[in-house]
Design a binder for these strands. Structure first.
Lengths: 335, 335
DNA sequence: TTGTAGGCGTTATCAT
DNA sequence: ATGATAACGCCTACAA
């Protein structure tokens, strides 16, 4: 099918030089006479020569591409959550600048875990990024042991010592909850995220700690970051204590779910119940009412993620094993 | 960095056979004695052998990976539009089933066009998919001429004859507009999409044609599929004719923008103005009021896209050059 | 059924 | 500065 492409050999013949010289020109070596260089370039253009990447990788041991692993749990990616798209955007931008290719791997099933490992082991990519990590997934650690450069988005749980970039969950939540307290709210609930992910765990910890400092009682319901789970959690929270006057949701989507459930229950926001989310997706500017939320720099996290692997790959510079990006409270009308 | 991996040679030595035999076993050839096959498998496991993909590609001329090109115009991808994520999901699912890898290329800049061409030409992927095509982009055609299997999502504009999969824009819009007419609306406006994309063009054509059949006058404003552009378009539409009683927006995001602008202008939906969108993103179930919209099967389109390239790649079966997926009107409360 | 050997297209190490 | 000439790791006729 794919028409025969010209090889180095063909270009060399046409330019009347050796393959080695053509290779030098193509790779920008300086030690080539100007005249020859020009002749080679001409031959390259005329023939439409493009280096064969497989052959090149075979000898250089480099593929110039990096994998991004997205542990796609159907629930989350099938909702309109924009976390992964944002990560992908950040990673893509940074990789493009570095002229590397992005290989996207969505590992829904358990068996695909194996696939990923083989894939990286096959030397098909120069490095691997995890878009998020569930539980104490052994894969990142396994890859590290294989000698593959790896960086995770989100601090991995468990003993594994893998470099990661994360955001300041705890600080952001503390800020949000203190804001609620300052507003005079005393019955502050939380809709927490999944407790097998550091984002879920740390945000809940931030809530608990801040509330304890304020001497207030906890009201906790667990969700999975989706809007549907936010609706369900809000209902159960309301059932548990109808007099709640505030709720912190660990994701914007769950906050939107809370908004819907609250409206359904006849509560006004923020008059009766104040609501704060976590993410700051664009959609939150347009919710009813506009959502007060903790902004996390997801695209930035993606960029950083990419910069870290890239650094790991060419061993340049000193890289910290952990990068924590700041979060920021964005006050709108819901609290 | 990356620890030396065992080669075919090493496995062969360990199993006491030749490289050829190991290769056969690894590739599942049947003509290998059971005993030997077992011995080889054992050696493979003990050594943790994984075939080197570069070496394999060099001889097979196959990479087992496919590229998805996303012409990322900042505007669109930076909003919370879920079109691309949905396409990616569909493509990803299908590719995973076929055990192929997804290489994601976001071509924001013009120069990246060149990069993509070189990349495909370098034989780094077995085929290429376009997530959407702007104007009469010459790239798909150029790749086809290079002998690269190509499929576009969205019928390409211009003379190029590239296989594509698309949805029934015209039919979906016609259905929506007829619904509006049946509701008794007589001043029906449209917020059209960008006129350099077939999705924008066809949807506008559907509106025009249906309106003409009903003997009604046109009211057209152009947007770019984003919510912001929907807000602006709705405002200008209202300025042009304050008595509008319906609007069809060519995307859900623009429809949401229209909803916001309408609320701002003191119009009730659907009492004063009926609104219909196009996409049926999850978010539209939760807008105020829930949005009536034309559902297009985006994830399916992604799956189909992938199936088509895969078919092209291994030349199996007869593939139609065009696949049109059906659309469907989902009636909720906004119209 | 199994082994031998050539070649896939580059890069890199030598000489020259 | 340029040119031979080995690798790189695998697949696949062809022989045995």
């Amino acid at each position: 099918m794919t028409r025969d492409r010209p090889t180095l050999e063909a270009v060399a013949r046409r330019a009347g030089v050796s393959r080695a010289t053509v290779s030098r020109v193509v790779n920008g070596s300086t030690s080539v006479a100007a005249g020859i260089r020009e002749a080679v370039h001409r031959a390259v253009d005329e023939l439409g020569y493009v280096p064969n990447q497989a052959a090149r990788s075979l000898v250089t041991q480099r593929t110039e591409s990096v994998a991004l692993i997205v542990p796609e749990t159907a629930n989350r990616v099938f909702s309109d959550d924009l976390f992964f798209p944002a990560i992908i955007r950040g990673v893509g931008a940074e990789l493009e600048a570095a002229d590397k290719q992005l290989v996207l791997m969505m590992t829904g099933s358990a068996k695909s875990h194996d696939r990923v490992e083989r894939y990286a082991a096959a030397g098909h990519v120069d490095g691997v990024m995890f878009a998020s990590v569930h539980g104490s997934d052994p894969l990142p650690g396994a890859l590290v042991r294989l000698g593959v450069p790896v960086v995770c988005s989100g601090r991995p749980i468990g003993g594994t010592t893998v470099p990661y970039v994360d955001v300041d969950h705890f600080g952001g939540v503390a800020h949000a909850v203190r804001h609620l307290v300052a507003l005079g709210r005393r019955r502050i609930a939380t809709i927490a995220g999944p407790q097998d992910m550091v984002a879920g765990i740390d945000r809940l910890a931030g809530y608990r700690s801040t509330l304890a400092n304020a001497g207030l009682a906890e009201h906790v319901a667990i969700g999975d970051f989706t809007r549907e789970s936010g609706i369900a959690a809000m209902k159960s929270l309301l059932a548990g204590d109808p007099a709640l006057d505030a709720v912190f949701a660990a994701s914007d989507m769950m906050a939107h779910g809370a908004l819907l459930a609250l409206r359904d229950a006849g509560r006004r926001v923020p008059d009766d119940v104040a609501v704060i989310g976590f993410d700051d997706f664009e959609i939150s500017r347009y919710s009813e009412p506009p959502l007060t939320t903790v902004r996390q720099p997801i695209v930035d996290a993606g960029r950083t993620l990419a910069r870290q692997v890239l650094g790991l790959i060419d061993g340049s510079g000193e890289l910290s094993d952990a990068v924590i990006l700041p979060t920021e409270l964005v006050v709108r009308e819901s609290a």
